[in-house]
Amino acid sequence: MRSLHLLPNPFFFNSFHSKTLTSPIPNPKFLPKSPSFTPIKSVLQWNRKPELAGDTPRVVVITSGKGGVGKTTTTANVGISLARLGFSVVAIDADVGLRNLDLLLGLENRVNYTVVEVLNGDCRLDQALVRDKRWSNFELLCISKPRSKLPIGFGGKALVWLVDALKARQEGCPDFIIIDCPAGIDAGFITAITPANEAILVTTPDITSLRDADRVTGLLECDGIRDIKMMVNRVRTDMIKGEDMMSVLDVQEMLGLALLGVIPEDSEVIRSTNRGYPLVLNKPPTLAGLAFEQAAWRLVEQDSMTAVMVEEEPKKRGFFSFFGG
């Protein structure tokens, strides 16, 4: 388990109750003294590569239900983070009508062929894969061009064929196939979730997004996808502190899903989108970029968060802080 990993604590796990920001945070200092209580202790394993769990390729669909919550941003950043960690990644932009993943990755000028051309026999699959020059183990595959219609007569079978074809590639099976799902629960959604065996549900801490997320989670579970983790995006700790925004623990209580990551609101997201340069490649790293990297790490290890950031604290100043220390 990664950072912020708390040892199984019977006190926390046996007493599930609503945690709002008004409720006292279970700081170990203020926890009741009980014989079963063990102080929170991290089991950190520094400076190692994440261990890939599960069978490859891991086919992960990133979905949300509601639009504009950050599915494509999550796909781009998690995908690039996985590539940086040394795993081969194929990102499929299954957002048929509103394709944007190529823009976020800065690969929009390199997409010549899509899956539609592959199906029609205009090109081979390897010709439709766009390899990122920054990280050569990251490839992008777009489903269709913006103004063309996807023949969905085959349903999601086309994506299943794609996954099978990627498995049988000469250069080896990719470790991760990440599918960027379109918003809604339309034909595009059905097509996108077909080959997936795990899902990342992206949501924001607002009630409209949560309702859609709950519905989509239900559909995914009905489809047989059981491994669903959520990422709470655009979290503002200042608003949580003022009780203007639901906390991550509130969101988790409503959805009942394991947490893969919490992404704070960051203005750098818009800048990175404008540049076509994923956030995780920023130097120096940004807050949201670090959170995406941590989420990617947990995804590799099929891990989930055991502690979340709730609010910002004033930084403790040292003795020499007056002198700029």
């Binding site: 623990l249 988790q252 394991a258 947490l259 968060m305 502690a307 979340v308 950031m309 609010e311």
Partner: peptide
């Protein structure tokens, strides 16, 4: 946890 120069208080997940 201190991230990017900001200190955040942590709360354990209770799910």
């Amino acid at each position: 946890v201190e991230m990017c120069g900001k200190v955040y208080r942590l709360a354990p997940v209770t799910l």
